[in-house]
Amino acid sequence: MSHLLDIEELNITFGGLHALRDLDFHVEEGEIVGVIGPNGAGKTTFFNMISGMVRPTSGDILFEGETLVGLDPNQVTQRGIARTFQNVRLFANMTILENVMVSQHCRTKRGVFGSLFNTRAFREEEAEIRRYAEEVLGFFGSRLVGYRLEQPASVLSYANRRRLEIARAMATRPRLLLLDEPVAGMNPIETAELTRLIGRLRSEWGFTIVLIEHDMNVVRDVSDRVVCLDHGETIAQGSFEEVSSNSDVIEAYLGRPLESKK
């Protein structure tokens, strides 16, 4: 198994409903994989499962050769997988800086003792957390730094919240980044910019990325490989061109010709 992430025979049922069925999926180190599929296809469940928020009914998730099944979400993050949320979920009343600082929690270790006695190790760690937070925020240009650092996340515009979510995920220092509809709700200019940034996330920061996206332009521009889910099953895999011309995929999005509909 040389894949970074390897998913085998994954099933999940919610009270009889198959949210995911016999899913096989893998990600190579350094790859960008796009996951597409119509609404309700199980894409977000798929992310929830990898990040440990939902436990699969059967099957295995291997990350760097070790299983993730049964781990709590924070342990998954500790192993090196970070995610964003489809419906942006920031810590709205914490400042922008704090949002990015808190997500370095699992990469740092000073506890009560250090902070009470203000030890040298504690001060150095705090300084490093802050430095790294600013570095991550600086990746998005001038938008999230400067006077913004001390502002609560709730005052940000929608697009900036999405950027902050990505920054927060980056700050956990992951190897694999799961982006859930990163450009949803953005205007074309912002979308184009973020598409470029996703590319840079791999080239400059070395992240492997899986993204769920409905905007096919983005998927085409960034993905090395595309996977299409429908009704919890993989219906096509391959390059964007292959998948987008696949008849099953077209059918999943547009529906079947009349006579064969179930």
Binding site: D72, N74, A92, M94, V102, C106, R168, T172
Partner: peptide
């Protein structure tokens, strides 16, 4: 603070 705001997200962010 993060737990107070949104516990499940805090957990997903490695807390």
């Amino acid at each position: 603070m993060a737990i107070r705001e949104d516990e499940s997200v805090a957990e997903a962010m490695g807390v």
